[in-house]
């Protein structure tokens, strides 16, 4: 029936206009020449990609290898990776706790997990900054009880960025893990104990492998937006540590180099897709 396809039309249309089209435009812009005050000139150029790895000498046009941008990319991956690991360490016990509550209580705990999302991300990030800054309540309290002489450097550094990432993405880790633990058959745990596994061995030999799909889903949901995050590095990092998201943002604002920003976006997307592809391939291989 034709009607069946019509049911999909709204979502397909939305994806086409708001996802596929911008991706196509971004990819296209990345191979064009930048115009002086933003925008592009319709002249093909690989300059944006060359710039990623090399520095072009202003006078004689020679290329020297430059790792500045790779470092930013590496830093972003590392920052997102650490945030993912922290979310996992905090999220797994939390999800386990919620999934093992009596049925009537689960929805209440799940709702509490989503409470931070009732407040806009920007507001939450600024609130976190107010808490962490030198005159914030933490530093005030530490000094008033005499634990520290001056303020601890809590804000405007990688620690603050990491805290921002963890606090904004933690629910994305908790929810898929909760779904996986909820489905977990706890008689398997008894079977493991019965078959001479202690708690630690049972966890690594039975619980973790069975929760793997949930771990992967949660990991991707934290890691991918973590790499390209913009607000946390911008506000909590005080713009001091440049991350990929901010670098891209700069190209479209201050630097007015749209093709370079587009190239960075395209590469971020490519890296993400390759990572997803590898995870999917490995998961598929384990299924068979």
């Amino acid at each position: 029936m034709k009607l069946h396809r019509l049911l999909l039309a709204p979502s397909l249309g939305t994806i086409l206009i708001f996802m596929a089209l911008p991706i196509a435009i971004t990819t296209l812009y990345s191979v064009l020449t930048p115009a002086q005050y933003g925008g592009v000139i319709w002249k093909p150029s690989a300059e944006a990609y060359i710039r990623l790895l090399f520095e072009r000498d202003i006078f004689d046009d020679t290329l020297t290898f430059n790792t500045d941008y790779l470092q930013i990319l590496g830093r972003s991956v590392l920052q997102a990776g650490v945030a993912t690991l922290l979310c996992l360490i905090i999220g797994l016990p939390t999800a386990w706790f919620i999934a093992t509550r009596p049925p009537g209580q689960k929805s209440l705990w799940l709702m509490l997990v989503t409470v931070p999302y009732w407040v806009n991300l920007l507001v939450r990030t600024i609130a976190l900054l107010l808490i962490l800054r030198d005159e914030g309540p933490i530093n005030r309290a530490l000094q008033s009880i005499g634990l520290t002489d001056g303020p601890l450097p809590l804000a405007y550094n990688n620690f603050a960025i990491g805290l921002g990432l963890v606090s904004s993405f933690l629910p994305f880790m908790i929810l898929p893990l909760y779904a996986a633990i909820e489905r977990f058959d706890f008689s398997l745990l008894e079977a493991a104990y019965d078959l001479h596994a202690n708690r630690r061995k049972a966890f690594f030999a039975v619980v973790l492998p069975i929760l793997r799909p949930g771990l992967i889903a949660g990991g991707l949901l934290v890691f991918i937006p973590g790499i390209g995050s913009y607000l946390a590095p911008d506000i909590l990092g005080g713009g001091k540590t440049l991350m990929l998201g901010n670098l891209i943002g700069m190209q479209f604002q201050g630097s007015r180099n749209w093709p370079f920003g587009a190239a960075l976006s395209t590469i971020l997307m490519a890296v993400t897709l390759i990572a997803l592809f590898i995870v999917a391939r490995r998961a598929a291989r384990e299924e068979t």
């Binding site: 058959d185 008689s187 398997l188 008894e190 079977a191 019965d194 492998p209």
Partner: peptide
């Protein structure tokens, strides 16, 4: 050792 009612075989 125990044979469980629903076997509780490890699915993975």
């Amino acid at each position: 050792n125990t044979v469980f009612q629903n076997y509780a075989l490890f699915p993975h």
